[in-house]
């Protein structure tokens, strides 16, 4: 009995240790954002550095006004739409590839390195290469076509490798059993496989969203006449760097954390009812 308590104590202690580490880690990766949060409340005549000269919401208001250079709101909307499309395509393609790569097939080695080339080719050049090809073909580059094309090339390997990790040591017996009971491939996938791999699919999609939203180099030559957010921000650097971008960063951070909170809440409610 005494041993059991000691064991339990030790477990609790280890868990506390890890939780502490997790908190430190979060502080580290949020580190530079701390300065950003504070500086977004700079007054009008101030910049992106300490000391704080005055306080106010001036730069937050600027966030919803039309920008001096470029069009931040439009670019933000385009980037989000693009990232959402990339997210869906990445999740679907990675899942399909993950399923296919469970067994070796003719050309699987070649296809593997082909997929991997997507993250190995320097983005700025693939952007140029595609722009030149499109020019020869007489196709107009646009953010929702050519930029989408290179974004998926970029995010797919990440999603694909995550699915490889998910399908690695995957237990096939359940699927086999379902098949033997006469289920169609689609039913087997929907009823057996998908529930098992769902977290991986979600992660692949999230990687897709994140990487696409942040992508700069690949977009430079193929965005067409409307900028995505990173292009817009970089263009605005030819002017002064204004705390508006800090307000934007802070805003999107708060928004993301709220979304996560919402997710936990909704998840809890749904499964409690069941």
């Amino acid at each position: 009995m005494a041993r059991w308590t000691a064991e339990r104590k030790k477990k609790a202690w280890i868990k506390t240790l890890f939780s502490g580490y997790y908190i430190l880690f979060i502080i580290f990766i949020f580190g530079p954002m701390f300065a950003m949060f504070v500086l977004s409340f700079q007054g009008r005549l101030a910049g992106t550095n300490f000391p704080m000269r005055s306080y106010g919401f001036y730069w937050w208001k600027k966030l919803i006004e039309p920008s001096v250079v470029g069009d931040m709101q439009g670019a933000l909307l385009r980037s989000i739409i693009l990232a959402l499309i990339v997210m869906v395509i990445t999740a679907v393609f990675s899942t399909m590839l993950g399923m296919a790569f469970r067994k070796k097939f003719v050309g699987s080695g070649l296809l593997f390195y082909m997929i991997m080339s997507g993250i190995m080719v320097p983005g700025i050049l693939i952007s140029l290469g595609l722009a030149m090809v499109l020019k020869v073909l007489g196709i107009t580059p646009t953010w929702w076509f050519s930029a989408l094309g290179v974004h998926v090339i970029w995010t797919l390997p990440f999603g694909f490798l995550i699915m490889m990790a998910v399908f690695n040591r995957f237990d096939h017996s359940l699927e086999e059993a379902a098949r033997d009971m006469g289920a169609s491939e689609w039913t087997v996938f929907k009823e057996v496989t998908l529930p098992l791999i769902l977290p991986g699919v979600v992660a692949a999609g999230l990687f897709g969203f994140t990487l696409s939203y942040d992508e700069f180099a690949r977009t430079t030559q193929v965005a067409g006449e409307f900028n995505t957010l990173p292009l817009d921000i970089y263009a605005s650097f030819t002017q002064r760097i204004r705390p508006t971008i800090f307000a934007l960063g802070t805003g999107s951070t708060i928004f993301s954390i709220m979304l996560i909170g919402l997710f936990v809440l909704v998840y809890t409610l749904i499964f409690r009812r069941k």
């Binding site: 934007l248 960063g249 951070t253 996560i260 997710f263």
Partner: peptide, 25 residues
């Protein structure tokens, strides 16, 4: 998932903004 997403939040701020923010830090 929630704790994993927390690690991903900084990623949703454009890296151009985040790298500029290192200077005041």
């Amino acid at each position: 998932l929630a704790l994993f997403l927390m690690c991903m939040v900084p990623f949703w701020t454009s890296y151009l903004i985040r790298t500029v923010a290192w200077v005041p830090m």
